[in-house]
């Protein structure tokens, strides 16, 4: 009896913790999606940008990947800000397709830059604690998985406080609800959009570091994580941080339970099928109206 319990408890607990990572990856996408109604196809590559940045800092300067965020967050904020200001903003009003195709081009450029700079080999952020796990009854849980959930909670609380309590946060929410009304109230929406994209990229920096601690990554890892992030966002519905969290945990659970009970090599396939089924059955998401 006890064995059966620990058999199911391990994937359930690690699934929930992994859900934390997926939430952080998806929050940036959800923010841009919610405010600008734009799906940033290059989002996965921005996350991998964070991973590679931490990797270079760790390899060449010897700093802990988490510490590298001190430089990583501002750097990615600047990258995101620039992408919106110099590329997206110019084609934003023209059509839905134009920003999509530009994001696609950015994704291609980033992906091949990583290939040239870091070779196509699989990399990981290996630290002193990356192989350690703690024991909970009979269950072994890797420390990095627990870190994922803690970081997700920190990012979620910080983001919601920022959106609720600061002027810029309120301006972001206002622009997402009604651009024209926001403009009439004297909000510079073009600037708010740049800030939103910057914040989204800054969250990607955090996501990238913890992704690198949890999984190995390659230059082409951006697409799988973009799909996961997209799945989380449609599961959770738009504009809800808690919804995103629930979506992240559902996908995390689906992956670990699938790996345990179906097959380890099919775990990504299970996620993709879930995303497709949700799109077919409830494109507005579990919590959408």
């Amino acid at each position: 009896m006890n064995e059966i319990f620990s058999d199911i408890a391990t994937p359930v607990i690690s699934g929930i913790l992994l859900g934390g990572l997926y939430t952080v990856i998806a929050l940036g996408l959800s923010l841009v999606f919610g405010v600008m109604k734009l799906i940033n196809v290059a989002h996965g590559d921005l996350v991998i940008f964070g991973s590679y940045f931490a990797y270079s800092i760790m390899t060449y300067l010897g700093f802990n990947p988490v510490l590298s965020l001190v430089a990583g967050i501002p750097l990615l904020f600047a990258v995101g800000f620039a992408i919106q200001k110099y590329f997206m903003a110019r084609v934003f009003k023209r059509s839905m397709e134009a920003p999509l195709l530009i994001a696609f081009g950015i994704s291609l450029v980033f992906e091949n830059l990583y290939q040239i700079l870091f070779t196509p080999m699989s990399r990981g952020l290996t630290t002193s604690y990356s192989l350690e796990s703690f024991i909970l009854g009979d269950i072994y849980i890797p420390v990095v998985y627990l870190l994922n959930l803690i970081v997700a909670l920190i990012v979620m609380i910080a983001l919601s406080l920022f959106l609720k309590k600061t002027f810029i946060g309120q301006a972001i929410i206002a622009s997402s609800q009604d651009i024209r009304a926001a403009q009439l109230m004297g909000i510079n929406t073009a600037r708010i959009f740049c800030l939103t994209f910057g914040i989204s990229a800054a969250i990607s920096a955090v996501a990238g570091v913890f992704l690198g601690l949890t999984f190995p990554f390659t230059p082409v890892s951006g697409i799988p994580f973009l799909i996961i992030a997209f799945g989380v966002v449609i599961l959770g519905g738009l504009g809800s941080i808690i919804g995103t969290f629930v979506g992240g945990i559902i996908l995390g659970l689906a992956q670990t339970l699938g790996a345990q009970y179906i097959s380890a090599s099919a775990q990504m396939l299970i996620l993709y099928v879930i995303v497709l089924v949700i799109l077919a059955v409830r494109p507005q998401g579990l919590f959408g109206r």
């Binding site: 799906i39 196809v41 973009l226 799109l279």
Partner: peptide, 10 residues
Amino acid sequence: GIYFAIGTLV
């Protein structure tokens, strides 16, 4: 629109 694009990306 854009939802179709991502749906087909999967």
